[in-house]
């Protein structure tokens, strides 16, 4: 697929994402933009080169985790191609763990849809 692995790096060694020809932001794919050492359960992540396609689905799946008390996403500015994702847990797991779990769950979910869909298409013929 296109543009998953960034091809260009800037002078600081940061990846530059050229999203389907649209000049995009420069920086790591994902970073922590806000967190506090007293509470690893709360953090805001910035994911570059993503939009509502992943933001909303990721928000939903992370929110499904009973250890997560809050999860929300926003696109701070429409011309900057990035998503901010806020996670707050009840303290039993860290925000990074919740994000990890969410990513795994969403990957499993999509592969389940893909395989059931393929089975159903086969059966329909």
């Amino acid at each position: 697929m296109v543009m998953q692995e960034p091809a260009v790096q800037d002078e600081n060694g940061f990846d530059t994402y050229v999203n389907g020809g649209v000049p995009s932001t420069t920086g790591p794919k994902i970073e922590v933009v806000a967190s506090n050492e007293s509470d690893p359960g709360a953090a805001t992540f910035c994911i570059r080169d993503e939009d509502h396609t992943l933001g909303n689905a990721l928000r939903y799946i992370i929110m499904k985790n009973p250890a997560v008390e809050f999860c929300g996403y926003s696109i701070p500015h429409p011309s900057e191609y990035m998503v901010n994702l806020r996670i707050q847990t009840d303290g039993s797991i860290s925000a990074v763990d919740a994000l990890h779990r969410g990513l795994d769950d969403l990957i499993n979910l999509t592969s389940h849809i893909s395989s059931t869909f393929q089975d159903k298409v086969q059966a329909f013929k």
């Binding site: 794919k29 396609t53 992943l54 990890h100 990513l103 969403l106 990957i107």
Partner: peptide, 12 residues
């Protein structure tokens, strides 16, 4: 669906 999986895997 594959695009979504690749995006998620890359973030992971």
């Amino acid at each position: 669906l594959k695009v979504l999986q690749k995006k998620l895997a890359f973030i992971k």
